[in-house]
Amino acid sequence: MAAGDLGPADGPALRVIGRARTRWGPDDCPKNIGRARERGAPATLEIDPAFAPALRGLSVGQPVIVLYWMDRARRDLLVQAPRHVDGPRGSFALRSPNRPNTISQSTVRITALDTDTGRVEVDALDCYDGTPLIDIKPWLPSIDLPPGETG
């Protein structure tokens, strides 16, 4: 497996494009992006210089979907019983980072952008400092809103 890849050598691999820089650690990380915003903690996406050209076309104020690998989450929980719901639910019915593939996502807004250095500041992020980033995608209401909803 190449450096920066996540996954087994004989199966799908994800390339780490950078790291999230947040103020969160295991003892104080918010449970979701809404709580991260409430706590007023912007975050920085440090993109590896090799991938900085991929930031071209993004702009300050734009909403983006950030995908990240919750590298410290459990991968063996298929059914969970979180406190905020009544009864156990399957991992696919929850936003928990504990899942077969620990991919998480948040829709955030770009607050500052430096495409030369690969630094993208966003309004918030709900992951530990140093969490591997695996993708950034533009959020587009024409694509990302469910059918029949208006934005």
Rank of each mutant, 00 (worst) to 15 (best):
G57E: 04
A93H: 15
L6T: 07
L125Q: 14
G25F: 09
A54N: 10
R19L: 11
A36N: 03
T102N: 14
G11A: 14
S96I: 12
I47T: 03
L45A: 08
C29I: 10
R95Q: 09
K31D: 02
T115N: 04
V64G: 04
L133G: 06
V85E: 08
V16P: 05
R109D: 00
T117M: 00
R21H: 03
T44A: 07
D28H: 02
C127S: 11
S96G: 11
L125C: 09
W139Q: 09
L58M: 14
R95W: 01
I143P: 01
L55T: 11
G11I: 06
T111I: 02
A20M: 14
I110C: 03
E46C: 04
V60Y: 11
S106E: 14
I17V: 13
I103A: 02
I136N: 05
A54G: 13
T150W: 05
D10S: 12
G7V: 10
V108A: 08
C127W: 00
R19D: 05
D135P: 06
A73D: 11
L125A: 09
R15T: 13
Q105G: 13
Y128E: 15
P97A: 03
R75G: 09
S59E: 13
I103S: 01
P53D: 04
P63T: 05
D144Y: 02
V60W: 09
T44Y: 00
W24C: 08
L133S: 06
S104I: 04
L45M: 09
E38N: 09
G57V: 08
A13M: 08
L45K: 12
M1A: 14
W24T: 10
A2K: 14
I65M: 14
P82G: 12
Q105M: 15
N32T: 02
Q62T: 07
P53T: 07
L133Q: 06
G118E: 12
R37D: 12
R74N: 09
A13E: 07
A43M: 06
S59H: 15
D144G: 04
D129T: 05
V120L: 02
I17P: 01
V16K: 13
A13G: 08
R99G: 00
L140E: 12
A73H: 08
V16Q: 11
S106A: 15
R89C: 01
S59A: 15
A52W: 01
R56T: 14
G118Q: 10
W69H: 01
L94R: 10
D5C: 10
R109N: 04
I136M: 11
S96A: 15
G61T: 10
T115L: 11
G25Y: 09
D71W: 06
D129A: 03
T131S: 05
R39G: 09
P138Q: 06
A3V: 15
D5S: 12
L67R: 15
V85C: 05
I136W: 03
D129V: 03
Q105L: 15
R89P: 02
I47V: 12
V85Y: 09
N98H: 15
A9R: 10
V120I: 07
G7P: 03
W139E: 07
I143W: 05
T44C: 05
D123I: 03
I143E: 12
S96R: 11
A9Y: 01
R83V: 08
I143V: 15
A20E: 12
R56N: 12
G7H: 07
P97Q: 04
L6N: 06
A9C: 04
Q62P: 03
I136V: 11
R56S: 14
A52G: 04
L113P: 01
